[in-house]
Computed example of a mutant assay.
Amino acid sequence: MKKSLLIIALAVSIISCNKEQTATSSSELKTAYVDTAKLMEEYTESKDLEAKFKSKSEAEAKKFEVEEANFKAEVANFQKNAQANGQAWAQQKNAELEQRQQRLQYAAQSVSQKLQMDGATEMDSLVKNVKAFVKDYGKEKGYDYIYGTGDAATVLYAKDQYDITKEVIQLLNDKYSKEGKKEAATETKDEETKK
């Protein structure tokens, strides 16, 4: 098993060296590109971040569903009792219900905006980290340029041989899973210490 892994690793390194020699000999600049849309779609940390905010959003939505159901029940009760309690009571209760409805709407908008801002902040941080990773990767592999394609395309055409998206995704996912294991181990130790 170890021999076969060693042989595979050696074969990959030879192939990559041949690619580097071909790229260098055919032109002076070594270039590649990353499909940024695909990267963000397949990068595990990006998926985790999206799931995290989807979960938060669903939890907040459930809270408001309960409050909305209570409000609707109160409105139904108001409508049922409006005539029996008189016009003055009905006007006062109606004003209270309108204020409560406005507070519920404001609270829902506020929570939605906060979730969007938090999500944007974390996504900006993730993008910043990915850019730094690609920059370090480019330096390590000797690239002169690494272009981004996808949603904000900066490359209109590139040969498939210059596409390093899969390799970058794999390396990012490996790095993220290692960091996640370290964080999980640290959290477990912290929890055990608290006990």
Rank of each mutant, 00 (worst) to 15 (best):
M1S: 10
L5W: 15
I8M: 15
L10P: 05
V12T: 13
I15D: 03
C17D: 12
N18D: 11
E20H: 13
E20Y: 13
T24L: 13
K30S: 01
T36K: 10
Y43G: 02
E45Q: 05
K47S: 01
K54R: 05
K56H: 04
K56Q: 05
E60L: 12
K63I: 03
V66S: 08
A69T: 10
N70A: 10
F71N: 03
A73W: 04
E74P: 02
A76T: 12
Q79N: 15
K80W: 06
A82P: 05
Q83P: 08
Q83R: 14
G86F: 01
A88Y: 03
W89E: 04
Q91L: 02
Q92S: 10
A95P: 05
A95Y: 06
A95L: 05
E96W: 07
L97A: 12
Q102E: 06
R103M: 10
L104D: 01
A107R: 09
A108R: 09
Q109L: 13
Q109D: 12
Q109C: 08
V111K: 13
Q113I: 12
L115C: 06
L115M: 08
M117N: 14
A120R: 14
A120Y: 15
T121L: 12
E122Q: 15
M123I: 10
M123A: 09
L126W: 12
L126S: 07
V127C: 13
V127K: 15
V127F: 13
K128S: 12
N129V: 10
N129L: 08
K131Q: 15
K131E: 15
F133R: 04
V134C: 02
V134M: 00
K139M: 07
K139L: 15
K139F: 06
E140W: 15
E140D: 10
Y143R: 02
D144M: 08
Y145C: 02
G148C: 05
T149Q: 12
D151I: 11
T154D: 04
T154Y: 07
Y157G: 00
Y157F: 04
Y157I: 01
A158H: 00
D163K: 00
I164Q: 02
Q170S: 10
L172Y: 04
L172P: 04
Y176C: 06
S177D: 07
K178P: 03
E179I: 06
K182A: 11
T186Q: 14
E187F: 02
E187N: 06
T188A: 11
K189H: 08
D190W: 07
D190V: 06
E191T: 11
E192F: 04
E192W: 07
T193S: 15
K195N: 08
